[in-house]
Design a binder for these strands. Sequence first.
DNA 1: CTGAAAAAAACTCCTTTGGGCGAG
DNA 2: TCTCGCCCTTTGGAGTTTTTTTCA
Length: 831
Amino acid sequence: MSEDDSDFQNSSTSGPSIVEGSTGKAAGSKRSALGKTIPVKPKKQKQEEKGDLLAVDDGAIGMDQENDEKQQESGHDAEESDLDDVGDPEFNPDYYSSDDDQEWVEVPVPEVLPQQEAATDEYYEEEELSGPWQYNAVEIVFDKPPEDVKKTPGRGITKEERMIRVLIHQTHLLCLIANGLCRNRWINSPKMHTVALSLVPEHIASSVQKVHDNPVREVNALQVLALWWKDSFVVTGPGIESVPYADIDVVGVEAAMPANRGESFKKRKNLQRRLLNRNGSSDVCSQLFTAICRSLGLKARLVESLQACTFKVTLPKDETVKSGAEASKSTTGSSKKGKKKKEVVLDESDTTRGSRQVISTPHRLAKRPKLPPHNKLADPPVFWTEIYAEVNQKWITIDPVRGVVNCPLKMHPAASCTTNNLAYVVAYDEDNYVTDVTRRYTSQWTTVTKKLRVQPAGPAGFDWWAQTMAVLTNPSPSVEEDIEEAELQQAEASERMPTKLGDFNNHPIYALERHLKKFEVLHPKLPVLGHIRGEAIYPRSCVKQVRSKENWLKRARQIKSGEVIPIKWIKSRPATIFQMRLQQQAALAGGNKMETDDDQGEASGENGDQVALFGEWQTEPYQPPWVVDGRVPRNDYGRQDVFTPDMVPIGGTHLKGRGIGRVARQLGVDFVEAVTGFEFQSRRSVPIIQGIIVPTESAELVMDAYREVTHHADQEALKKKRAEVLRRWRKLIKGVVLRSRLMEEYGEDMAVDEDDERDNWVPPEDDDDDDEVGRPQDVSSSPTTDDVGRAAGKRRLVGAGSEGEGEEPEDRSEPTQAHVEADSGGGFMFD
DNA sequence: CTGAAAAAAACTCCTTTGGGCGAG
DNA sequence: TCTCGCCCTTTGGAGTTTTTTTCA
């Protein structure tokens, strides 16, 4: 068998492989789409193509080594080489479903849990590329927002653009996680472990694997391991770097795509080779170190600080303005400051969109050259390792790139480092579950780190990140994971107090009086936790919501009886035309007589344009009024507020139903309308009235009557409907009879004329066996309504396959209608 | 260079008790 | 003649957050 044959077979039978877990439809379309673009190639051609694409990997490593490796693998054809990575369909049953876009497309789906997958070689290999291979960039398309976005030049971004940025941010995160999961699975491979284990010096391996009696010694052993790896591995470059947001529409793909997106591998073996070579990017260094740890039997996690492009707009304007100005002045775009991509800066006179886009790119690029001598290796890497130390009973952070052990906070990059932003740190464990461990690696979780992440939409809103992690985390966490979570929460709670004034704003734990919202008060103003610039710091728990009397009423609470002093006064604001008129009149009346608020204004002598606010502790549950002597209480508007079910007057019952008020009136039962809320339109407030309130003793009576009335109304409607049905039947049948008679009298000419429309048409009764109505020619006069009604019923019963009963022609008529319509092509409308 | 504060812009959410007219 | 229900119209401005600008 020649290699060409093999390839041909692969190509023709499988074509490009499909993504596992994707829907059949998507897979099918993809297959066909790619099938057109990928011709069957001879082996040589494929090698060249792959060689180019694998330029990073293939340099120093020849086939020999790869083949050596092969010798160790049993059960595989010796011909299988690195370049012939398609495998053999005969040996690899998963071949046809393996994945050629593995680093990007394999977004984990909840259905496929790692444990459920067989831990076979295919499991670790499945992400490898196979078949004739062509790089297809993943393109993610979002709906374009409406164009009519009005925008003042040079200002912040629009809502739509913010949304797009967030979407891109989220998508990027998912891609990075998918990539991390892929690498994590690769380094779980038994083959990888076999190689890894052979590298570790005996004394180090035994030291690490030994069960230690002392926490310090345990950490020391890990330290030795990390230092050994740091010394034996040559870091050739940085890993994945953070990329600023750039609008591709404006700056172009070239500018938007960063040069360094980390070291890419298309298959596990390429990564595995680095194990033998012991060189690579810092990402690879950490990934391989994690593999080594796992091969030693340690419980090791691969940890990644996800470098998703930011969605925040954070730029000092000076830089933007400066670079923008320079760009417009110098046409060459060359600058000693090294703003090599300045040409992306659009002219200031350009569209609003363009001038806005200036923002991120030049800013970030302008900064980068400032740290050219900056030793990247001094910065923390993006990947590292965590090992669960049994004696310490906690996860120990190991940075194999710098040889740092148990210093989680050292993994946080400097604020000045633009290529490494710590916002999401996830740990991939051996079971390919993902844990969010960010809080372990930041000392400013609340004030800084959290704000770099996508926020939930409101307090109870959709939390994208939480939802995403819920899919990826272990659904049944182990004991150590529970301990870890408690530890992380503890770290969050004991985070030190902010030092910046602004950071107290909306802080979950602390509060300043200056940041209180309009409807917030401090109560009690104790304890004072500290001071900042002379301002007292209170616990957030002292911040209480306050509301007006009316607003409390909406929540079924009323101000406590007795002398209650409002905790706060705010300026009132007329919300309706009616109120505005009142206020204007009051203003016109002059300052001589200001209307005082009789209810609670006297205590402080405030004017009517002030609104008193109360805290919850000043309120009590609403006490509904009583129904006295069968008379329902009512408010000033002749109605009763029933915002919640608790507000129904005592001794009364809330009856809902349209037109029920009329029934109560006819019965002579006292009732009031129930106001359940308000609608606002044209600056007018309109009460929403739902049902009535009647004395409970009359409720049954009213309800019975109401049921009677509605039943009667239903009957009436039914009767009417039935009459209409019969009328139409009558018309139809008369038409049929007439037609028959005409046919009889004047022959086939008529039929020919109507054939086009009518040849499929069958009169409803004609095909029935027993002719209560009779054949058309038998019916010389119009059928009675009864006859027709029975005929209608009969017709329907034929269709339904049952005969006999049924006193509701209306019920039958609808299927009948449907049937007739289907047969005759319509023309028999029924409401 | 950083942080505070003000300014500006964008966005969110609160506001709290009809009236005319036709059908039945 | 009375009652019911449909339909009319579709704000606006304060509060809050975000971003930009200014200043110490």
